[in-house]
Design a binder for these strands. Structure first.
Lengths: 347, 347
DNA sequence: TTGTAAGCGTTATCAA
DNA sequence: TTGATAACGCTTACAA
């Protein structure tokens, strides 16, 4: 039951184990015959190089870690992360790089880098706190290949993959204004999260310049139940805002369910706009700000793979746009009902 | 930029590195003072044990591999796998076990085990072929901790986590029959997949004993577009079966889209039943056979973690049930329209 | 309680 | 082209 080692091969072949090692790795200076013999024996005996020993001498593991921002139930229940992982994993697959992950909220990932368990790291979203960021920057100064996905808590030199949210938000506001909305409700992400704050102020600014106001702001937790709860709160207000903006699609899904349960018609009574455009959004006909999630993941892994090879991958700027579906109403074709000039807001 | 090693600590402290090693690991026989000194220095210098060296001497890595059945885009686009991973990852998180994965279709995982890269393995679904199965059985005879999720291609001694599909399917057929359906269409999974074949014959048998017949069978590819394509085919038949059974929810989602595009009303014109009950199914109101996907994943990881510790986890049988939602019609409350005796089929 | 020394399985350097 | 041999960083008998 013991594993076959290089020494075993060397012994039964009567050669030095360095010879075997070389034969197995296409070392240019090795006789074709011995190479052949060694390989045949290796196959016959089922030899597999020990990963730990190899990593120890080579001083790298060939593995890339992915740091998830929260615990497993949250991350895997959220299609945003699945889609990000889809992008990450598909590039990793092509590059032949195995991925190590743990959903632990503890910053295990920094330890992994230091322990040599992984050579590179992709840190997702608000899993990165200001404190960790400093550590990561130090590590990156060494040989670690690091990429961040999503807005970090502060400006950093670390390669960061992010999409410009302004275009999508601006279009959304323009459309909402054109459809006659004037007072909106906003359900943002967790209070502490930098990205949520940024997104919220972007919505506010865009709404203002489209001639609308945000009359109610709630903090959600980025989950579907959280969105449902927010919806119930919003429904209690008087008057109820007739267009609701969400910090992500998951919350919008929850709200849609709550709205249906309450017998409120969408988009007739209230319009709903999500954020991210995760796959189920299309299924449900949710109008949402589209982010190229999968492409973000792909690019992050590409950056890391390139850094691992000592190369540097080209930078790329991602954008967003509005995906208009069935949870918002379009601008009235006949301006009969609305007041004059309303349609001027449309871009 | 070089990493701090045990030797470094030993040198600056003037002790042997074995002493340092012991002090760092709560070795019972070590003086509290030296232990304290060592630990303080370790913290100050930012010492982190090298994972490769440790794995090399300890002969295990502490990592568990997850073998995905297909390539990344397929796996992560499918909520079934996300949910499975949710269960797997949440148990792993509690146990402090990192997860290594690659979505490569090649059986890399068997190599991983032999290379000592992972100590245990969870192989998902039809990623396991008959050939690999033999290898895995051999490995499990050694010290490898292996668990399978989903029906393997043939009977095996390997711990397998699976849900009994019969109850859910039986109820579905009973309800369909009660609602007046007599001729069904079935869209199964990939032709070669063992699980798809099993599921198909279960549907056939259950339908028959509920007095219905399956008049059309199509092979889908378990994806949403595949389901949409299947739906278009089914719509061309004459007459169109008025209840459609799908091998998984993803295909049912695709079909629902195609049906809507074709202007066919669900469930009035055709009833749709999915399989798995992935999260979006509830969102869409899809009637489907519920599998406890997350629990399956949790249990698989529990089996592996237990095996890693030399323990043995309790066996558990999972079941299925029908989740009735809006894509099937219920039995008529007044038996006026249907012939006598129809409602007798209801359990 | 601590030190010495022999591995763990591989790679790499230097001779031969 | 091949062979010794010294790392790589840690653990673990066995001594002291």
């Amino acid at each position: 039951m013991k594993a076959v080692t290089l020494q075993d091969l060397a012994d039964t072949l009567g050669v030095a184990r360095s010879t075997v090692s070389r034969a197995l790795r296409d070392d240019p200076q090795i006789s074709p015959t011995t190479r052949h013999h060694v390989r045949r024996l290796a196959r016959d005996l089922g030899y597999h190089p020990n990963a730990a020993a190899r990593a120890l001498t080579r001083r790298h593991s060939g593995v890339v870690g992915v740091a998830l921002p929260r615990s497993a139930p949250f991350v895997f229940a959220n299609p945003y992360f699945s889609t990000l992982l889809e992008g990450i994993a598909s590039v990793a697959e092509d590059a032949g790089v195995p991925i190590l992950f743990s959903a632990s909220p503890t910053p295990d990932y920094e330890r992994w880098l230091r322990e040599g368990r992984v050579d590179g790291l992709i840190a997702l979203g608000y899993g990165v706190r200001a404190l960790d960021l400093e550590q990561l920057e130090g590590l990156a100064g060494g040989s670690a290949a690091i990429a961040l996905v999503g807005a970090p808590p502060r400006a950093t030199e670390l390669p960061t993959v992010i999409a410009d949210e302004a275009p999508g938000v601006a279009t959304a506001c323009a459309r909402l204004a054109a459809a006659g909305h004037r007072e909106l409700a906003l359900v943002t992400g967790p209070e502490g999260a930098a990205y949520a704050r940024a997104r919220a102020s972007l919505w506010r600014a865009s709404a203002a310049s489209a001639g609308m106001a945000i009359v109610a702001t709630l903090h959600g937790d980025d989950t579907q139940p959280g969105g449902a709860a927010a919806a119930r709160h919003l429904l209690e207000q008087d008057p109820v805002a007739d267009a609701w903006l969400f910090g992500n699609d998951a919350m919008a899904f929850g709200a849609l369910g709550a709205l249906e349960a309450a017998g409120v018609r969408v988009p007739t009574d209230v319009a709903v706009v999500g954020f991210d455009d995760v796959p189920p959004a299309a299924l449900l006909g949710l109008t949402t700000v589209h982010q190229p999630i999968r492409a973000l993941g792909e690019h992050a892994m590409r950056l890391v793979v390139a850094a691992l090879r000592g190369d540097t991958a080209p930078d790329h700027t991602f954008s967003t746009h509005l995906e208009e579906r069935r949870t918002t109403r379009s601008a009235p074709s006949t301006p009969a009902v609305s007041s004059h000039g309303v349609t001027e807001d449309v871009t």
